[in-house]
Design a binder for these strands. Structure first.
Length: 466
RNA sequence: GGCCCCGUCGUCUAGUGGCCUAGGACGCAGCCCUCUCAAGGCUGAGAUCGCGGGUUCGAAUCCCGCCGGGGCUACCA
């Protein structure tokens, strides 16, 4: 096995700053971090900003923010520096140019002057003839004269490309099926399949752990590493994809759940999200489903990684998040709830926590439950019986100490006196006070509100004392 | 189209030839608890293991074919 256990293990993620921070980036980062931590290795963050059209600096910030939120911190990166700086590909252009020049000088690559239109025509032609498309090598054999704009193409040497995937075992590709591909675009920027292996080699990455969509890219990158005379990484690991609920690939337009920041906004705990993400691609072989991060570092192995993509399921995420929320102690829950309840002071949040804890699939759900504390609900219309119960309750609440236990006792006395079930008394109170049919237990519902405000809402519905 | 990966309850999965009348989790249903909603407890429904052929005394597990899904096939990454 290629997983030698020494401190020189180096892994990386290479996200592109072309939009919001991606769920997939989080997932890949998690696998990389687990592996790095387990083997005392180094986790590198490299920014893959070679697409001048779509790349934006603010998107890079979003990636940092998202990964920091999840606690998936890196050892080397554009913002932290390190022995292989710079870590932004746009700042490594000279390096790629040098490598391209080397390939050119060695006759392992050549300039291609074909226009996109010409290439398109070639491709369409092949398609029409039902022939697998490969670049014609026109510019290798018979380049058009008088053109200045060019790309650099790698001359695919042919033969089998074989490598070990930590998840699927020995993989073998026939490079004869791969046409000469572009390594340097006409704007001078490297393509992904060029920049990535050059960086992996020069940054001495030992284990390339990435999404399964890159499995077919691996032979391209390996051929380049070989041609450049670098040693290959020890191994590759292609992790299963996260699919949309309908089994299709997630797209930015149709699938907001791709946006990492959505989870923070909704009040998913970062540790719960990580726990869910790991379950989408791996299991320990036992029935354990909830793990601390350290347990994951301990338990994670590639041989238990799933081979097929998994569908994203909000229900399971909600359950896991609820489990984590319930496991938080009161102070910690209150602290995490604060950003979601800006209208409430800390003391009120703290008093509400016991009533909230088992009722939150996500932190943002606290808003629905506590909204009545800062907004005045419209008074409900109640039938005469309900109004009668309300009046009895108001009477019972007179002079009680304004805290849950005392309120509860007082109300129960009223309930007993009524000879009816508690709901007959509690529901009208709930509706009058919150405007809703769902709220925390009635004693908390009342106690969280200042006494005079609570009583005023009751009076509004049932009328004042006689 | 070509190459590659994958295919067990609705979903995530356990399972590597007999322990599988296929196990767990989420979700769902019912009951209990209960002031509503949750949480918690118990019970239950739910998968002829994509389909068809083999191999074998015996296959979800091995082989072949087919079908289905996904990825790559870009001067995107």
């Amino acid at each position: 096995m290629a997983v030698s256990d020494h401190a020189s293990i180096r892994v990386r993620i290479a996200p592109s700053p072309t939009g919001f921070a991606h769920l997939g980036t989080a997932s890949t980062a998690l696998y990389n971090v687990l592996f790095a931590r387990k083997h005392g290795g180094t986790f590198v963050l490299r920014v893959d900003d070679t697409d001048v059209e779509r790349n934006r600096p603010e998107y890079e910030q979003l990636i940092y923010e998202g990964l920091h939120w999840l606690g998936l911190d890196w050892d080397e990166g554009p913002d932290k520096g390190g022995p292989d700086a710079p870590y932004r590909q746009s700042e490594r252009l000279d390096l790629y140019k040098q490598h391209a020049a080397r390939l050119l000088a060695d006759g392992k690559a050549y300039r291609c002057f074909c226009t996109p239109e010409e290439l398109d025509a070639e491709r369409k032609q092949a398609q029409a003839e039902k022939r697998p498309y490969r670049y014609s090598r026109r510019c290798l054999n018979n380049p058009p004269a008088g053109r200045t704009e060019f790309t650099v193409r790698f001359k695919v040497p042919g033969g089998e490309v074989t490598f070990t995937d930590l998840i699927r075992g020995v993989m073998s590709f026939d490079s004869g099926l791969i046409g000469d591909f572009i390594v340097v675009k006409s704007d001078g920027f490297p393509t992904y399949n060029f920049a990535s292996p050059v960086d992996d080699a020069t940054m001495r990455i030992t284990h390339v752990i990435r999404g399964e969509e890159h499995l077919s890219n691996t032979p391209y990158q390996l051929m380049l590493i070989d041609a450049l005379g670098y040693p290959r990484p020890d191994a590759y690991a292609h992790m299963p994809l996260i699919l949309a609920a309908d089994g299709s690939k997630m797209s930015k337009r149709k699938h907001p759940e791709l946006n990492l920041m959505l989870y923070r906004e909704q009040g998913y705990l970062p540790e719960a999200l990580l726990n869910y993400l790991i379950l989408l691609g791996w299991n320990p072989g036992t029935s354990q489903e909830i793990f601390t991060f350290n347990e994951l570092v301990e338990l994670f192995t590639f041989d238990r990684v799933q081979h097929g993509g998994a569908r994203f399921d909000w229900e399971k995420l909600n359950w896991i998040n609820g489990e984590y929320i319930r496991a938080l102690d009161d102070e910690e829950l209150a602290r995490r709830l604060r950003p979601f309840l800006p209208k409430l002071d800390e003391a009120t949040i703290m008093r509400a926590v016991p009533a909230l804890k088992t009722r939150l699939p996500k932190l943002a759900a606290a808003v629905d439950l506590l909204e009545y504390l800062w907004t005045d609900p419209p008074p409900p219309t109640l039938d005469p019986d309900a109004v009668e119960r309300l009046r009895a309750a108001m009477e019972a609440l007179r002079n009680v100490q304004w805290e849950p236990a005392a309120i509860h006792d007082a109300l129960m006395r009223a309930v007993e006196a009524s000879g009816l079930g508690p709901n007959k008394t509690f529901m009208p109170i709930r509706q009058a006070v919150t405007g809703k049919k769902i709220s925390p237990p009635i004693d908390y519902t009342l106690a969280l509100l200042p006494r005079d405000v609570a009583m005023a809402r009751l009076v509004r519905v049932a009328g004042g004392p006689d």
